[in-house]
């Protein structure tokens, strides 16, 4: 699943120091549950993103454990405190060992 995976995150460009901002994240992924069978009746092996994290300047905002019940193209929305200018790092961990990440800078206005 290392090909065709596309992360998308929405973070405001600026915030006041100490402000709470809403963050949304989405990534393209089949999230194969391990419950489905192919045409020959064989179980299609599980292949999901099992962990998602968001850190800001090295400090954790949210660390999510995902199970196969998370929908295809996993979506998360949550709130982060922005104490100073810096960079959000978003990381998705795939069952197959692949790690996808994306970064977003935020300024203090």
């Amino acid at each position: 699943m290392a090909s065709g995976v596309k992360p998308r995150v929405k973070v405001p460009k600026t915030a006041a120091a100490g402000e709470a901002v809403t963050i949304k994240s989405l990534i393209s992924h089949k999230m194969e549950s391990g419950q489905r069978k192919d045409k020959e009746g064989n179980v299609i092996p599980r292949s999901i993103i099992n962990r998602f994290t968001c850190e800001f300047n090295g400090q954790m905002v949210i660390d999510v454990t995902l199970e196969p019940a998370i929908s295809t193209n996993p979506y998360f929305q949550f709130e982060a405190t922005v104490p100073e200018a810096g960079e959000f790092v978003f990381t998705w961990y795939d069952d197959d060992g692949s790690v996808y990440d994306t970064k977003k800078k935020i300024e203090i206005a």
């Binding site: 596309k6 998308r8 949304k24 989405l26 393209s28 193209n73």
Partner: peptide, 12 residues
């Protein structure tokens, strides 16, 4: 548009 999951495919 951010809540719309189709947009990842539009981005691609």
């Amino acid at each position: 548009d951010f809540d719309n999951p189709a947009m990842i495919f539009v981005d691609q």
